[in-house]
Computed example of a mutant assay.
Amino acid sequence: MKSFDTIVIGVGGMGSATLWHLARQGQKVLGIERFDLGHGMGSSHGVNRIIRLAYFEHPNYVPLLRRAYELWRETERLWGEQLLFVTGGIDASLEGSRIVQGALAACREHDLPHEVLTARETNRRFPGYQLADDYAVVYQPDAGFVASERAILAHTSLAIGAGAQVHAREQVIAIEPANGRVVVVTDRDRYEAGRVVVSAGSWISDLVPALKTKAVPERQVLGWFLPQKPEHFRPDVFPVSNIESTVGHFYQFPTWGIPGFKIGLYHHLHETGHADTLSREPTEADEEVLRRGIRHMFPDADGPTLRLAACLFTNTPDEHFVIDTLPGVPEVIVASPCSGHGFKFASVIGEVLADLAIKGSSRLDLSLFGIERFEGA
């Protein structure tokens, strides 16, 4: 049986970064991926993902984000390709909403540069936006997006260059802890390691039964639409955004990679189920809910459809991550940075998971992400 220091199950956003941080520290590591490397079955495809500092979800995320920015820039230097693009970012909703107040709380607690704008000020400054007068806006200049598909390839390539092994098209069947070690059984072989990191995305509950009802896959659809006024949607004039509107909670990107304005809707059509059964084929209904947001807030982007792509969120009940060792089994580390806001953290979560595997702890505060918070829920 082949033996490793650490095995990483799932080589997506989190797994690829974990492999890199383990390999760069001299660990003998194996990454096992069920699908192809850089596949389109999970959560990290679709060209890019937003990164933002004014984190309305909880101020405790901000220190993680600051480190994530540092590590994305380091990865760029080592890989030789830009991965993080700064556009500025908008958090907007009605005055007093959780998004606006949460973004302000994060900015104030962590002394982040920001501006509070009216809807009219926002529309004049960024003409791709046409927000109604009753919207309040927090603008934070450091937000932008990460080239998610390229980032996975970058982390994986760097890891392989540092000695990591990666097996794609190999499915993990079982994880068997025994005598302080762990055996990983796949459809091809058996492997042994001192630590195992489970970063299997929407399939994580198949391998971690404790998350069966706590990490629930949800179908999402992203859309790219040809703007009628493309000059308003370039990265230099259109900030990424996160807007809780009267027609839904939408997130937006400027034109980049694909020649179209990109938009998504949190909790899209509320379709949940097992990751193997949720459809990856977009429909007219998917397009229509995205166009509802476009017509409400971005009418100059209401042009022909260029692309629709389905992906998966994996939602926890409180929508915070799960980053912890498995109770009673410290050799197994569980990583589900999910609920639709995880990818931006991949660079730092990789470092955190490597520290947990090697040292048993992280210098960063992970108290929000313990798996035992779900007990009795």
Rank of each mutant, 00 (worst) to 15 (best):
A200S: 01
E244P: 01
A54Y: 01
K344E: 11
R66A: 05
L290R: 01
D111I: 07
S241K: 02
I258A: 10
R307T: 01
E109A: 13
H270S: 15
I258P: 11
I204D: 05
G180I: 00
G26Q: 01
R73C: 02
P127K: 02
G163Y: 01
M1K: 10
R52W: 01
D302L: 06
M41V: 06
V138Y: 13
T325F: 11
S148A: 15
D134S: 08
L83H: 02
A193Y: 03
H232T: 09
G10D: 08
R280Y: 08
A215V: 13
L53Y: 07
G340Y: 00
L64V: 01
E115M: 05
E170H: 08
A193H: 05
L78I: 04
L22F: 07
E331L: 06
L78N: 10
Y191M: 01
D133Q: 06
L84C: 01
H296V: 04
F345Y: 15
R108D: 02
I152S: 09
A54I: 01
E375I: 08
V221M: 12
E284L: 14
A154D: 09
L22A: 11
V247S: 02
C311F: 04
S362C: 12
P259R: 02
R67T: 11
I294D: 05
L366H: 12
V221Q: 04
D134E: 13
L71G: 04
M41I: 07
V208R: 03
P327Y: 13
D189F: 02
Q25C: 01
T122C: 15
I152K: 08
P239N: 08
F145L: 01
F145N: 01
E271N: 04
L117R: 00
G10S: 09
L364R: 12
P230V: 12
V322H: 04
L265V: 14
V116T: 13
V352F: 13
I294M: 09
N242V: 05
D142L: 07
Q27M: 15
Q27N: 02
H45T: 13
E95K: 15
P227W: 10
E284G: 05
L83M: 08
T246W: 03
R77Y: 06
G96Y: 00
F225Q: 06
F313H: 14
A178Y: 10
G31H: 07
L290C: 06
T255N: 09
P327M: 12
P230Q: 09
D276M: 10
I323A: 10
A17W: 03
Q101K: 14
A178G: 03
A310Q: 07
M1E: 12
L30F: 11
P330F: 13
G260T: 08
Q101N: 15
P299M: 09
T277V: 14
H274A: 14
R125C: 02
L269S: 13
K359S: 12
A159Q: 00
Q25A: 04
L312K: 07
G96K: 07
R219W: 05
R34Y: 05
L131D: 03
P254A: 11
R280Q: 14
L226K: 15
G264D: 10
P259L: 10
R292K: 15
S205F: 04
P127S: 07
R108S: 04
D5N: 14
G42E: 14
F85L: 00
G350K: 09
H232G: 03
R49T: 08
K2V: 11
G12I: 12
E331M: 01
Q82M: 02
H167L: 15
G15L: 12
